[in-house]
Amino acid sequence: MSIKVENVSFTYSKKTPNSYEALHNVSLEIKKNSITGIVGHTGSGKSTLVQMFNGLLKPETGTITVDDFVIDSKQKKIKNVKQLRKHVGLVFQFPEYQLFDETVEKDVSFGPKNFGMNNIDALNKAHEALAMMGIDETYYKRSPFELSGGEKRKVALAGILAIDPDILILDEPTAGLDPKSSLEVLTLVEKLHEQGKTIVIITHDMDLLFRYCDHVVLLKDGNVAFDGKPENLFQKNIDDLSIDVPKIYQFLDILKKKGLDLSKENIRSVDELVKVLTERRKK
């Protein structure tokens, strides 16, 4: 068990004419060491849900259990918020907008310092995180504001990685990135997953979802509309859920209709398809 959400509801600006129910009685479970994708339209409650995982928002009803931490709607204040935030790293959408310090390394060490590390340890942690993101030493003393978009994003991501959270939540990590940078970010996410971290990704990109995630939660108007494996999501009649079917899935579907059934091979990307096909040819 990593994250368990039970009967959680949340309403914004309650008791005002602008009141808006973002989540309605949501229950779900995110397993340890999984990559979970959370999908849904704008305003379906994805971001709200995710902000509860690290205690930025408190559920109005229900309980959220994140490993040892319990966030209950009946509590006045969430206990151990700081430890919870160290445990669950949340990367917001367009994280490059949260850069603020003079140099890249100082900015990245902001997180570890806030969680009680001394300057030297924090800088070491920052260098480690930056190296992981593929940002080399020549950048350490530069201002984060003079970097390119992709580099900024990587530095901002490093800012969260430096905290070394066990659960990493990414809100649309590839939005607005060029293909090369977005592949780099995703490869890193995969690597972190292999290191044993639990990953939650909010995304609109179904190809990404199909390729990387082993668990999908689909939210619709604050309700869980689907909870299960990605391939099962696309098998369902999803016209009414208005989701694009991943291109590779469509292609496999066409192959199947033409008489080549590859559904047992668990193909998730073009590279994997090529591999399977060449192997079959050799046979």
Partner: peptide
């Protein structure tokens, strides 16, 4: 949004 983002990084 920025406040929340920085709070996620442990800002108090």
């Amino acid at each position: 949004r920025i406040m929340k983002a920085q709070e996620s990084r442990g800002a108090d």
